[in-house]
Design a protein around this nucleic acid. Structure first.
Lengths: 133, 133
DNA sequence: TTAGATGCAAAGGGTTTGCAACGTC
DNA sequence: GACGTTGCAAACCCTTTGCATCTAA
């Protein structure tokens, strides 16, 4: 997933900066449209297409992460350190979980199966505190 | 996620049987369109809409599983027992991994966070044997 | 007989893209 | 000045849905 070779000429724009800031300042793991609405308060003329393009570039730069839980939409995370998520199947909210990530298991799976393993994801599904009642 | 209450009147149709059989007979974790093409050899007049509808019903019946790796498309799995997958980021192939699934961790996460936890998923990402060379 | 299932085609909805204008380096 | 970036709108593509017809029970 090393795509830095195509990102050498990446420029600094206020749109991209704003998008990154929005993601760093929230912990709600939003989708593109939520980010778009948020950035629009600061840059009213920004377009949704730009948000999608910049999210893709930021992801390739390794500054954000992409999270896919359901087939409906993609979520984004400003925290790039690998961590575990909980997905509420009722309200669709996403929470970070304070559970240690087993980094050694990647090597183990790679060795056992002959794969090149870059990373793994671990996510829990159920009902959040608000929805379980 | 108990939806059996809405599935009481489910009937047995050759389309649904064929879709389930295709999924049971492959280990390639296909998408809806692949299944559609496969079933079409047997039932030429089946429609893609039926495939999507039946996949949804089979999933709700617990006879198949839905796998979401990227935002592009949904994959389906005829094996319902929880297991771990490897996703090749180059050729997009999916492999089953022979790694034990920690079933206790669901309870632990539930207890620590106050969630109701139904299940978790664990997937590895990287390059498969064919693509790593 | 009757309610669920199907085929067909149209609609939905998140995401991508072509292009001319713009902004960064 | 060169080339990456943006806005806008149209296109894409997977998936869902309305409706008349069909069929399992």
């Amino acid at each position: 997933m090393n795509k830095t070779h195509v990102l050498n000429g990446t420029r600094k724009t206020k749109q991209r900066e704003a998008i990154l800031k929005v993601l760093k300042d929230t912990n709600c793991h939003p989708g593109a449209h939520w980010i778009y609405e948020k950035v629009r308060r600061e840059i009213p003329h920004i377009s949704l297409g730009t948000v999608y393009r910049d999210l893709k570039i930021l992801k390739e730069m390794g500054k954000i992460r992409e999270l896919v839980f359901t087939g409906n939409m993609t979520h984004f995370d400003g925290i790039t350190k690998q961590h575990i998520h909980f997905y509420c199947q009722k309200c669709n909210s996403i929470s970070d979980i304070e559970e240690p990530v087993n980094m050694e298991i990647d090597k183990s799976v790679a060795a056992k199966n002959g794969f090149k393993v870059y990373c793994h994801r671990m996510d829990f599904f159920g009902l959040c505190r608000a929805c379980r009642s």
